[in-house]
């Protein structure tokens, strides 16, 4: 079969351009999330997720089986359009707050978050009182001149060194 209208060079050029343009969308199944954005977002989430089998490592640092699998799942969820918080919630729902390297602030963790500040507060108060008293004592004692006898004794001791 032969085409009745032979496309001009310009027309075929435009066709090719248009096809290339659309093919991008076909390859990249999720047009909203580029490969790069996916990578940076997933990396950010990985850093905050505890590797459950290696305890104090994030899944980003770990190559344990479960960590690898969680990474795959996180990427999957990102591709499905989950927000970062929704992904964290997804994991917390299954594994509890323990899976987050940074524990969230709630009633059971309040002591953890607040205690350092309380301790700092008391330390500052006691510190200022201590320093204040010390300097007050020093002022009082510095006014005290040596007694005559003490003066004599001191010059005697110093005299021994000459």
């Amino acid at each position: 079969m032969q085409l009745k209208i032979k496309p001009s060079k310009l027309q075929s050029f435009i066709l090719v351009i248009v096809l290339i343009f659309f093919s991008g969308n076909i390859i990249n199944a999720n047009p909203g999330l580029s490969e790069e954005a996916l990578e940076t977002r997933s990396q950010k989430i990985y850093k905050g997720i505890r590797c459950l089998v290696c305890q104090n490592q994030s899944i980003e640092d770990s190559s344990a089986g479960l960590a690898k699998q969680l990474k795959v799942i996180i990427k999957e969820l990102l591709n499905q359009g989950y927000t970062d918080q929704e992904i964290r919630d997804y994991l917390v729902e299954r594994y509890g707050n323990w899976i987050l390297l940074k524990p969230p602030f709630n009633l059971s963790t309040s002591a953890l978050w607040v205690l350092p500040f309380i301790i700092l507060f008391f330390a500052l108060i006691f510190g200022t009182i201590y320093i204040y008293n010390k300097s007050k004592n020093q002022k009082e004692t510095s006014n005290n001149q040596l007694k005559k006898e003490e003066e004599k004794e001191l010059s005697k001791i110093l005299g021994d060194f000459r």
Binding site: L52, Q69, R94, G96
Partner: peptide, 13 residues
């Protein structure tokens, strides 16, 4: 096989 259901159960070992 892929451990996906186990993850839904919160299994880690």
């Amino acid at each position: 096989l892929n451990g996906r259901v186990s993850i839904d159960f919160g299994v880690y070992g």
